Amino acid sequence: MEKQTLKVEGMSCGHCVASVEGAVKKLGASAKVDLAGKQVAVDYDSSKVSLDAIKEAIEDQGYSVK
């Protein structure tokens, strides 16, 4: 399993947390959102999903990944 922490701009509430965590979960990975820190910690199997795919899934929810 790989672990990465991504900076994500635009999250501000519980709905944002659910959106990001849900989008990442659909890819077979897990995410833990830190609203105050504007970060998302992701755990994923790099043989099944790429970090780029995870970033794209978060961006598709309307957030900016740095």
Rank of each mutant, 00 (worst) to 15 (best):
D52Q: 14
K3Y: 10
L6A: 07
L51N: 06
S12I: 11
A36S: 15
S19L: 14
G14V: 10
D43H: 10
Q61F: 10
I58M: 08
S50Y: 01
V8F: 06
S47W: 00
Q61T: 13
D43V: 08
A29W: 00
E56S: 14
K3H: 13
V49S: 00
Q61D: 09
K7E: 15
I58W: 02
A41S: 15
V20G: 02
A31V: 08
G10Y: 04
D43Y: 04
Q39K: 15
A18I: 10
D34C: 11
V40L: 11
C16T: 11
A41V: 14
D52C: 08
G28Q: 00
D34F: 12
S19T: 12
V20W: 01
Q61M: 13
Y63V: 05
V33I: 12
K25D: 14
Y44V: 00
T5H: 10
V42E: 01
L51E: 07
K26P: 03
G62C: 12
K7F: 14
E56W: 04
E56I: 07
V17M: 12
K3V: 12
K48E: 08
G22D: 11
L6P: 03
S30N: 12
Q61K: 15
S47P: 01
D60Y: 04
K48G: 05
Y63K: 07
D45W: 00
S64Y: 07
A23T: 05
V33S: 06
V20T: 05
S46Q: 06
K25I: 10
H15L: 14
V17N: 08
K26Y: 04
V49D: 00
D45L: 03
A23M: 08
C16E: 08
V20Q: 03
Q39N: 14
V8M: 07
M11T: 02
S47I: 00
I58A: 03
V8I: 10
A36T: 15
V49E: 01
A18V: 12
G10M: 08
A41R: 09
A18P: 09
V49L: 00
E9I: 12
L6F: 08
S12E: 12
Q61V: 09
G37P: 09
K3N: 11
S19H: 13
E2A: 13
V42S: 02
V33M: 04
L6C: 07
K32L: 13
A31K: 06
I54N: 01
K25T: 12
I54G: 01
S64H: 13
A31D: 07
V20S: 04
K25E: 15
A31H: 06
M1V: 02
K38I: 05
L35K: 06
K55P: 06
E59V: 03
K48S: 11
H15N: 15
I58E: 02
S50A: 09
V24R: 01
G37V: 10
L35D: 07
A29C: 08
V33H: 04
G28R: 00
A53I: 01
L51V: 07
K3Q: 14
